[in-house]
Design a protein around this nucleic acid. Structure first.
Lengths: 266, 266
DNA sequence: GAACCATGGGTAGCATGTCACCCACCGGCG
DNA sequence: CGCCGGTGGGTGACATGCTACCCATGGTTC
């Protein structure tokens, strides 16, 4: 609250490269949490929205000015994002957005396969009746969000369902881990980009999975989870390929190849 | 530098909890990296050495004074440890060491099983001859360190071997993840406490695993990794139980129970 | 004796000052 | 024309000042 009008800031339209101020990721209105967390959210959103792009150098001071907070929370939030692998620091030069390659996406989903297939199996085995009710409720919430076409709510419900299954598997560490994986790869952003046109289908993809979990059919649940993740993975790998301007006629072939190489054995 | 003799602080043998200043984690001599990293290392060491214990509240200012640096790098390092789950912050009150329960240890190893069994399989399948040479070299380094009885070197070589296998599996994301898991659970500290008397045996436990990887026998390598992790996990779970003052006659039983529950399905 | 409230010390979170260092730019030298 | 060393702006890392806030303590009231 010290600066009420931000006196200097970007100054006149300096055309010099490197100091370019392409787009200011405005501060989030998400009050309630610490400023550092707000910075993290804002930067993630700016990345997925395309306001900040790989290959360009940004600085703490720059973001702090744009978001009208001091450098401390900005630095703190950025360091956390850096540890998560979302950005990379160059000493005394600034930081840049790390580009998520199709291979990275495939690898993340290979890891998720390793963890969540087992989780589905364990959830089907261990879940108590009231816990199964929660699964059903979350599933219905997903369908509801999907029906309204609300992209963000659908993605959130999707996440919630996966998190719930991990929880029912009784492994808190795994929950935390997968949670972090999502953050790391700006997973949400990719999902958003991909499924914009097919929000309605997202819910139905979970039908078989939920059905088998509710029926406590361990192996079928595991298989359904594996198939679900494979489908999602390939869709996101394809999207990542398109982001890299891969010719459309090669996307299908490369997707199968990348996912096949990353997933074999998991 | 502010307090040269800590004028007030704990005062005479105050029995009051909370304000006690039990032991000062002295600054590391580990120069070369940033102060924040040095703080992280120092705090981890202080925890594993028992100088800092769960249930007690510490503060940034306190550590900063003890280590003779400013609050900034201390806060930064502690925040990172907090994100890893090693400590927990209480707003305006301080932070405390998070106790690692036997169940936590078992869960971490369940996750590692999910990731590293598949990694062993893939490493056996995919490794090039020169990469197998690296495995052999790392294995010999482990034996060498084990032979000299150097605990820290042995633990490091152990880590190196596991990391190498993950790398050869071609999943950079998994490597990063397991790396973080180690940090999280103050894994090294537990290992140290456990194997102090049996450093010599640690190397031999990897023999079958390495042998099968070198022979490129996928399924045997996977099985060997699973058994190796199960053994290690149970040893550490038992150690965690003893830390919690579990009666020795119940340790074996509880260990089997906890590990069985956590690992089933992975 | 017990419940209530003012108060003061201590804390994390945020803002700001300072510094060594790196790199891009630029002018002079070969 | 090409190389090369001085130089200045910008950056991350660290030090320090400031503030809202929480909690324990002790006095006060009933």
């Amino acid at each position: 609250m010290t600066t009420s009008s931000r006196p200097v800031a970007g100054s006149p339209a300096d055309g010099r490269p490197g100091a370019a101020t392409p787009a200011l990721p405005s501060v989030t209105a998400t009050t309630g949490s610490s400023l550092a967390v707000q910075v993290m959210t804002a930067v993630r959103r700016a990345i997925t929205a395309g306001e900040m792009e790989p290959g360009r150098l940004y600085s703490v001071q720059q973001l702090a000015s744009a978001m009208d907070v001091s450098r401390s929370p900005v630095r703190e939030g950025l360091l956390r994002l850096g540890e998560a692998g979302l950005i990379r620091f160059h000493r005394n030069r600034g930081f840049e957005i790390v580009e998520v390659s199709p291979t990275d996406v495939a690898e993340v989903f290979a890891v998720r396969t390793a963890l969540e297939v087992a989780a589905a199996r364990r959830a089907a085995r261990l879940a108590e009746p009231e816990e199964l009710d929660r699964v059903r409720a979350q599933w219905e919430a997903l369908h509801e969000a999907s029906r309204t076409g609300d992209l963000e709510a659908t993605a959130e419900a999707d996440e919630g369902l996966h998190r719930l299954l991990l929880l029912l598997a009784g492994n808190a560490q795994a929950v935390q881990l997968v949670e972090r994986l999502r953050t790391t790869t700006s997973f949400l952003g990719v999902v958003a980009a991909t499924s914009r046109r097919r929000v309605g289908e997202l819910a139905r993809e979970h039908d078989a999975l939920v059905e088998f979990v509710l029926a406590q059919d361990e192996e079928s649940a595991a298989r359904a989870m594996r198939e679900h993740l494979a489908e999602t993975a390939q869709r996101l790998v394809a999207e990542a390929l398109r982001t890299q301007r891969t010719p459309e006629e090669r996307v299908a072939e490369l997707t199968a190849q990348i996912w096949g190489a990353a997933a074999a054995g998991y």
